[in-house]
Every structure is written in structure tokens, then in C-alpha cells.
Computed example of a mutant assay.
Amino acid sequence: MSRKRTIAVQALVALSLSAPAMAMDNLASVFAGCTGRISAEMEHAWLMNSDRADDLEGLRLQFVTLLDAITPPEQARQVLHFRIEAKLAHAAMLTTATFGTDPRLVHMAQNQAALRVRDCRNLLLDS
């Protein structure tokens, strides 16, 4: 598979994996998705030595707290699974946005990553 095609497939997989899980409570899936995405952003910021890492760490902690507060014990495994899927999908999107070679895919990944983080930030009262 060509490099461009691989990156395109990664971007599509990242977008599809970040959709809410239907079997979970909707609010739990939203918070799990945001927790995973913000975790990926935080780790990416650490790797890129970005000043945003501390802000993202605080934001991640807020989502972890919210997610823990609303997750029933019987859904804990499913919520964790969805959180990890969202994190991996977002990390793939950030990899494409940072290291991609196709300008169109890089631009699309940058926009999607920023949009998803902005949507998560908008859920909090203090953002």
C-alpha cells in the first residue's frame, strides 16, 4: 500500500473509531471520547515539547473526574475500552496532522483534531 493511501486509511479509521458507542450511555460515551482525545493531545504535546501539555493535563483530569462520576460499575470496562479507542484514533489523527506528507490530509487531520478538542472544551463550564 502506498504511503499516501496508508495515511488516508489511518485518517478514516481515526474518524470512524471516534464515533460514540451505541451500547453505552450517551453521556458516558461523550466523556469517554473526550477523555481519550484529550489524553492523546496531552501525550502529543509532551512528545512535541509543547507549552500546552500542562493545560491539557488539567483538562484531562476534569474529564477523568466527570467520567468516573457518571460511569456505573457494570459499564466500567466498556467505558475504558471506548476511552482507549478514542485515544488511539485521535493519536493517529495527530500523527497524520504532524508528520503527514499529503497537504490535504494534513490539513484535514489538523482541522478534525482541533474541532474535536474544541467540542470537548465546550462541554465544560469554565472553558
Rank of each mutant, 00 (worst) to 15 (best):
114 A>R: 13
14 A>F: 06
116 R>Y: 09
107 H>T: 10
61 L>E: 15
59 L>E: 07
90 H>P: 03
82 F>H: 11
86 A>Y: 01
123 L>S: 04
35 T>Y: 04
60 R>G: 01
42 M>H: 14
83 R>F: 00
69 A>K: 06
119 D>H: 11
105 L>F: 06
97 A>P: 04
80 L>H: 09
49 N>S: 13
13 V>E: 10
51 D>I: 11
83 R>Y: 03
17 L>K: 08
52 R>K: 14
102 D>A: 05
65 T>Q: 13
26 N>A: 13
94 L>V: 03
36 G>F: 02
31 F>M: 09
37 R>H: 00
60 R>N: 02
101 T>L: 09
5 R>E: 15
127 S>H: 10
5 R>K: 11
89 A>P: 02
69 A>R: 12
126 D>I: 11
82 F>G: 00
23 A>E: 14
85 E>K: 09
105 L>E: 10
114 A>I: 04
75 Q>H: 13
12 L>A: 15
85 E>D: 13
11 A>G: 05
32 A>M: 01
126 D>R: 14
116 R>F: 13
122 N>F: 05
33 G>F: 01
42 M>C: 07
16 S>V: 07
25 D>G: 06
64 V>F: 10
97 A>E: 04
108 M>E: 12
40 A>W: 04
100 G>Y: 04
119 D>L: 11
109 A>C: 12
104 R>G: 09
66 L>Q: 15
37 R>I: 00
46 W>E: 12
32 A>V: 02
21 A>D: 14
126 D>Y: 07
117 V>A: 12
96 T>V: 15
55 D>L: 03
82 F>R: 04
82 F>S: 03
24 M>G: 04
64 V>Q: 14
31 F>N: 02
68 D>H: 08
56 L>H: 03
17 L>Y: 09
18 S>K: 04
112 Q>A: 10
78 Q>V: 03
18 S>A: 11
6 T>W: 11
58 G>F: 05
74 E>M: 08
78 Q>G: 04
11 A>Y: 12
97 A>S: 12
71 T>D: 01
15 L>H: 06
62 Q>D: 06
120 C>Q: 03
56 L>T: 02
42 M>G: 05
9 V>G: 08
1 M>F: 08
22 M>G: 07
28 A>F: 00
86 A>D: 00
11 A>C: 07
26 N>C: 03
125 L>S: 05
119 D>I: 10
68 D>T: 11
109 A>P: 03
3 R>C: 03
72 P>L: 11
19 A>R: 13
4 K>S: 15
42 M>W: 13
